[in-house]
């Protein structure tokens, strides 16, 4: 039996380009050819390519994103193994692993926060750009910059307070895992740092008018 297979990645969102026209301003035009983070309605099933011709800093950030993404993918596989092991343990060994739920729950937090940082770089966090696209050009630019600055600011908060939180609960332990509760909060500073770097990168690019 033959039939057309749906391709792994979808054609990019023509719908928006035509219905929500990208009215470019001189300064942001180049930047918005590679759509800025919120301008594309997201098909989350579609991975975005990393930048094509990055400078040294760009290469470094691409590398960081690639390593983080690899880690997230591995986490998904590990989580599958853990829960399968839990079922196997209960039925075949009649000995439910005590740590499996707890560990899978912590790994899911890692996946969320690190994956959330990559989504900042790839512009896959869902946004409502309908109104912004109807702003006058200057205002649109300003809104775009404000959004990126605020995301950067939140990344900073995650970085600083995440580290503080990890430190506060250092002496506590996670039941059944026997490790410090601060393990729960380690991904916050890491994700925060990545979010700061990725939003700063987008801002610098818009400033320099390069894609």
């Amino acid at each position: 039996m033959t039939s057309t297979r749906p391709p792994l990645s979808r054609p990019s969102s023509r719908c928006t380009r035509s219905t929500l026209p990208t009215r470019c301003s001189p300064t942001l035009c180049a930047a918005s050819r590679r759509p800025p983070m919120t301008d594309v309605p997201n098909d989350p099933t579609e991975p975005r390519p990393l930048d094509r011709a990055p400078g040294p800093v760009g290469r470094l950030l691409n590398g960081a994103a690639a390593v983080t993404q690899f880690f997230c993918t591995a986490l998904m596989v590990v989580m599958t193994v853990i829960i399968s092991w839990q079922i196997f343990g209960r039925f075949i060994l009649n000995n439910t692993p005590k740590w499996s739920e707890q560990l899978a729950g912590v790994l899911m937090v890692y996946l969320t926060l690190l994956g959330g940082a990559i989504a900042v770089k790839e512009g896959r966090h869902i946004a409502l750009t309908y109104f912004r696209d109807r702003f006058p050009v200057k205002l649109r630019e300003a809104a775009w910059v404000v959004c990126h600055l605020l995301v950067l600011g939140f990344g900073l908060i995650m970085l600083v307070y995440g580290a503080k939180m990890a430190q506060l609960v250092q002496a506590w332990t996670i039941p059944t895992l026997g490790v410090s509760t601060s393990v729960n909060y380690w991904p916050f500073p890491v994700s925060g740092a990545l979010i700061v770097a990725f939003s700063a990168q987008a801002l610098v690019r818009a400033w320099r008018n390069t894609p």
Partner: peptide, 27 residues
């Protein structure tokens, strides 16, 4: 028989991207 190791990894990677944005919203 339509999956191989390579497509498996790509599918997993795709899935984590969706998962992360959904869970980030929930968080």
């Amino acid at each position: 028989r339509e999956l191989g190791i390579k497509s498996f990894w790509k599918i997993t990677s795709n899935a984590t991207r969706t998962v992360a944005s959904v869970l980030f919203l929930i968080a």
